[in-house]
């Protein structure tokens, strides 16, 4: 089989963004050959559905589905896990999605200073004109919509109250991950697995992107084991030197 082609965003001194990063990390961990195609000046991304994997005649989006596809191709990073560890993986991914994702979306797409000075110009420069005028705003509205619909509602009436709550949740989630990781190199010992790919996908953007408003980054930097975890993966698997990138 020819190496599947992964289309994704390239960004900020990171190999890619949140979800694409999860897929790329998993591919590195499992040894799956991927040809990575970074999006530049694209007409193809009006839905912002990245990453997309194309293998022969199948097209797959969403990280969970791509990972399943790679597993079926015998690129499995979880061979050595026990059944219980497999269950833990699913549970921690749910924790990330429920508790960390809303704050991550907020930092990128809703916090006005971050959005105007970093996220919007960056995305606009990767998308062909005139889509570049429209797509970033659409992605921002979708993020806001998701946060309000899932985390809003009584008794949190104003956006400020919802924000306070999602950042509280996110910081608690980071603390839980830090406690769970402890002093070991990866979440299940010495070799990286699916869970490590997901955690890395969520943490690396928080850790590396230089935003004007950095609530989460400040909190993450107080948890040395999680920072070490990100640095290790970036240096060992992506051959990046550890420096703050924009």
């Amino acid at each position: 089989m020819a190496a599947p082609l992964l289309s994704c965003w390239e960004s900020w001194g990171l190999p890619s963004l949140h979800e694409s990063l999860t897929v790329m990390a998993y591919a590195k961990f499992s040894g799956a050959p991927l040809t990575v195609n970074t999006i530049n000046n694209s007409w193809r991304a009006p839905k912002g559905d990245m990453p997309v994997l194309v293998s022969e005649d199948t097209v797959i989006s969403q990280p969970a589905k791509i990972l399943n596809f790679l597993r079926k191709q015998k690129y499995n990073a979880d061979y050595e896990l026990s059944a219980k560890q497999g269950a833990d993986t699913l549970a921690y991914i749910a924790l990330l999605e429920e508790k960390l994702l809303p704050a991550l979306l907020h930092t990128f797409w809703i916090e006005a200073e971050n959005y105007c000075s970093v996220t919007k110009p960056w995305f606009a420069s990767r998308i062909a004109f005139p889509l570049s005028l429209y797509v970033p705003g659409k992605m921002s509205r979708e993020a806001l919509n998701r946060i309000l619909l899932t985390k809003g509602g009584p008794p949190l009436y104003s956006l400020t109250e919802v924000e306070a709550q999602i950042y509280r949740d996110a910081k608690e989630c980071l603390n839980l991950l830090s406690k769970r990781l402890g002093t070991s190199q990866f979440f299940f010992g010495d070799t990286p697995t699916t869970l490590d790919a997901f955690v890395f996908g969520f943490l690396a953007p928080i850790y590396k992107v230089c935003f004007p408003r950095v609530q989460l980054q400040e909190h993450l930097k107080q948890l040395p084991n999680l920072c070490r975890f990100c640095d290790d993966i970036l240096t060992c698997y992506f051959r990046l030197t550890v420096s703050d990138g924009r």
């Binding site: 833990d88 549970a91 749910a94 924790l95 999605e97 429920e98 991950l177």
Partner: peptide, 18 residues
């Protein structure tokens, strides 16, 4: 202990999420 508490919260999110 702390690790068990993290695990408990993770599984509770799994139930809510799925």
């Amino acid at each position: 202990d702390e690790v068990q508490k993290a695990e408990m919260k993770a599984y509770m999110e799994l139930v809510n999420n799925m």
